[in-house]
Amino acid sequence: MWRKNECYAEPIGYSPNEFVRILVIEGCFIIELFRKIAYKELREKNDLIFTGDWMFLFLLHDLILLENQVPWIVMDRLFNMTMDPTHNKPLIELVKTFLHTFLFTESLMATLLSQIGSISSIFEQCCLDCEPRFTSYAILLDNLINTTKDMDILCENKVIDNWLNPDDAVPFFNKLYYNTHLKKEIYY
Results as ranks from 00 to 15, higher is better:
L108R: 05
T148P: 02
F98R: 01
I49N: 01
S120G: 04
E156D: 03
I116A: 15
I22A: 13
I119T: 04
Q69V: 03
P166K: 06
M151V: 08
I139A: 08
C127T: 13
L103Q: 00
I49L: 08
P71R: 12
L141R: 01
L48K: 02
N174T: 00
C7L: 15
R43F: 09
H181T: 11
C7A: 14
A110C: 10
I25F: 13
L128Q: 03
L78S: 09
I49T: 01
T82S: 14
A9W: 04
I92T: 12
C127A: 11
Q125Y: 03
N162T: 03
D167C: 08
F98M: 05
F102V: 00
D129R: 15
G27P: 05
P16H: 11
F34T: 00
L63I: 10
I122G: 03
R21S: 15
R35W: 05
Y178M: 15
G52H: 10
D53A: 12
R21I: 15
I119Q: 05
I122P: 09
A110T: 10
P166N: 06
W54E: 11
F102I: 01
W54V: 10
T101L: 00
Q115D: 05
I73Y: 02
H61S: 14
V24R: 11
H181P: 00
P11A: 05
N46P: 13
P171N: 10
I92V: 05
I64C: 14
T105A: 10
K158W: 03
D62K: 13
L33N: 12
C127L: 08
S107R: 06
I92K: 13
N162K: 00
Y39I: 02
S114I: 12
E10M: 07
M1V: 13
F79H: 02
L140R: 12
F173W: 07
I37H: 02
N68I: 02
W2N: 14
L141N: 01
P16I: 09
L78K: 08
E93C: 00
S136Y: 02
Q115N: 12
E156Q: 04
L66D: 08
N17V: 14
E131Y: 01
F173H: 06
R35D: 05
L42I: 13
S15H: 13
L103E: 01
F102T: 00
F172A: 06
L164D: 02
N165F: 11
D53M: 04
F134N: 01
S118K: 04
E26Q: 09
Y188P: 12
A9C: 05
